[in-house]
Each structure stands twice: as structure tokens, then as C-alpha cells.
């Protein structure tokens, strides 16, 4: 159970931080920021620009209210309640319809994913794409990253639909080779 490991590890760091250890505190906040980014990103995906602001606001709230955590309580439940509180606040401030529904999610979910790596991975993929020729790069960019249909991509790039499909296929193969993945011929079926 990776979630349990995260709980144990973050709890150990936080306990040190509460004793005044600033190195442990920094590490704790870094790790937590990754989890918060993933958690909030999933719920705010209409407003990607707000995610980072809200991550910082949650970190500040956690910092200011860190005396309210008691060691008997799972840290994930405590952090989750704060993140949800701040998220609801933001949604309510925008008076969007989402504010009417309290997000129904479990506290364990927060520690279940971490997006420090994910946003770096996205940047890496975009960088690697630059190295591909246009007739492979554009189909991958439009279909796999922006989510357009093959027909729409064909119209935008002036390529035929089959050329778009072939471009995606070959481009992904080339990327897979670059990442050192064995060529399975079906790489595109698994998405980027």
C-alpha cells in the first residue's frame, strides 16, 4: 500500500518539523506540495492557473494551523480536511456550481498520487517532441496532447487522415526508442 508508506514517511517528517527541525519541515512541505498539486489539479482542471496559488495557500494554512494536528490522528485526514476546506472556499468565492457539491472523496486519496514528477514529465515530453519531424510531431501534439480528433488534426495540418495516424504511430515509436523502451509496435495504443 503506497498510501500507507506515504503516511508513515510524511508523519515522521512532520513530527520532526513540529519539534523545530527545519530541514525535515522543508522536505515535508516539498513532498506535500506534490500531493496537493495532484489532488487540487484533478479538481480544478478548468482553472490550471489557480492550482499553484491554491497549493501555496494550503501550505500556508497547514503552516499556520499545524498546532491543531494531534499525533493520534492520521495525517492524511488532517491534510485532506484542510485542502478540501480551501478548495471549497475558492469554488464558493467563484460561486460556481461545483461549490454546491462537497467533493465526495476519501482522505486516503490525497496521498495516493504525487505530481511533482508529473509536471516535469509533461515538460520533458514536449521537449522531446521538438526533435521529431513536423509530420510526426504535429499529429502527436494535436491528437495525444491536445485531444483533437484525427479528422480535425488532418484538416489543421493539411495531412491526410491516414498520414496523421501513421505520423502518430511512427512518432511514438521514435519517442519510445529515445526513452529506451523496447519497441512493441503498439506503443500508441497505450497513449503518451
Amino acid at each position: 500500500m503506497p498510501t500507507l508508506d506515504v503516511e508513515t514517511e510524511l508523519r515522521a517528517l512532520f513530527v520532526c518539523a513540529l519539534a523545530g527541525d527545519d530541514a525535515a519541515y522543508r522536505l515535508f512541505l516539498r513532498r506535500l506540495a506534490g500531493h496537493l498539486r495532484a489532488y487540487l489539479g484533478r479538481r480544478l482542471f478548468g482553472w490550471p492557473d489557480d492550482v499553484e496559488d491554491l497549493v501555496q495557500e494550503c501550505l500556508l494554512a497547514i503552516h499556520n494551523k499545524r498546532h491543531t494536528w494531534l499525533p493520534a490522528q492520521p495525517l492524511s485526514a488532517w491534510v485532506h480536511a484542510i485542502a478540501r476546506h480551501k478548495l471549497i472556499d475558492l469554488l464558493r468565492a467563484r460561486s460556481v456550481r461545483e461549490a454546491l457539491h462537497e467533493p465526495l472523496d476519501a482522505a486516503e486519496e490525497l496521498f495516493a498520487s504525487n505530481q511533482t514528477a508529473a509536471h516535469e514529465a509533461r515538460r520533458d515530453v514536449l521537449g522531446l517532441l521538438q526533435e521529431l519531424p513536423d509530420k510526426q510531431r504535429l499529429p502527436i501534439l494535436h491528437v495525444k496532447i491536445e485531444g483533437l480528433s484525427v479528422a480535425e488534426t488532418a484538416r489543421r495540418t493539411g495531412l491526410s487522415e491516414s498520414a496523421v495516424k501513421v505520423g502518430i504511430h511512427r512518432g511514438l515509436k521514435a519517442l519510445a526508442r529515445r526513452f529506451g523502451v523496447a519497441d512493441q509496435g503498439q506503443a500508441h495504443a497505450q497513449g503518451v
Binding site: A17, L18, A19, G20, D21, D22, A23, A24, Y25, R26, L29, L59, L60, H63, R66, H67, T68, W69, L70, P71
Partner: peptide, 12 residues
Amino acid sequence: LARQAEPVATRQ
């Protein structure tokens, strides 16, 4: 934030 680490009583 980490620079402000200090011993905190958790039985508040």
C-alpha cells in the same frame, strides 16, 4: 515557511 520551523505544542 520552513525557515519558520520552531517547536510547536500539538496539544493545543
